[in-house]
């Protein structure tokens, strides 16, 4: 007696696969997990109360932004590009005491950055980006790589040695102050 051969019809397989494919195509979102990293300072309560560290004026690079997103760099209104701002910060950090108005050495140099409560996040990120670019470029130059390569090194835990070497003696000191409350 001839047995019926058990056959699964596979003509519709492609259709089913297409259907699933379409579903995943539509629901897929490419994860965007990139951004500017930052380490916040310790909590305000943990700071020793009467530790008023005196920082010399020359070692501070002041950037202020008001609620109209206008910039004040070292006390003067700034309208130039962010690229130029990065170059200014680079020059400031790497001054090493040459210019008496600029920083003593990279270890003492602090980029102080103060926004207003009304400053938009967009402007804040632009300026933070410029400040971080300045430091990253210094680090990259020290290792002799491009900035893009340096950032890959920085996010790779296995290349910690190179990362530490490039940062040696040039800590990234970007201080973000409490925002002012007046909308000025």
């Amino acid at each position: 007696m001839p047995r019926a051969t058990p056959d699964i019809p596979n003509a519709s397989m492609a259709d089913i696969a297409f259907l699933l494919l379409t579903f995943f195509l539509v629901t897929t979102t490419v994860a965007n997990d990139k951004g500017l990293t930052l380490l916040l300072p310790p909590p305000p309560e943990a700071m020793p109360p009467d530790q008023d560290v005196k920082i010399q004026e020359r070692n501070l690079f002041k950037i202020q932004i008001n609620s109209f997103d206008a910039l004040l760099v070292e006390g003067e209104p700034y309208t130039g590009s962010m690229r130029e701002l990065s170059d200014k910060i680079k020059a400031f950090v790497q001054n090493n005491g040459v210019d008496p108005e600029s920083s003593d050495n990279p270890e003492k140099a602090i980029v102080s950055f103060k926004a207003d409560r009304g400053t938009t996040h967009k402007k804040f990120i632009e300026v933070l980006d410029a400040a971080q670019r300045a430091y990253y470029e210094i680090y990259a130059e020290k290792l002799g790589v491009t900035v893009d390569q340096w950032r890959d090194i920085a996010s790779d835990p296995e290349r910690k040695a190179e990362y530490n070497k490039s940062r040696e003696g040039i800590p990234m000191q970007i201080s973000i102050a409490e925002p002012t409350k007046v909308g000025g």
């Binding site: 965007n32 997990d33 990139k34 951004g35 500017l36 990293t37 930052l38 380490l39 916040l40 300072p41 310790p42 909590p43 305000p44 309560e45 926004a115 409560r117 990120i125 933070l128 980006d129 409490e178 925002p179």
Partner: peptide
Amino acid sequence: SDVETELRRANARIINYSA
């Protein structure tokens, strides 16, 4: 910055501004 202050208090200090 209000959020950041609270994060500092909560000792979650590594942050990343998505961009």
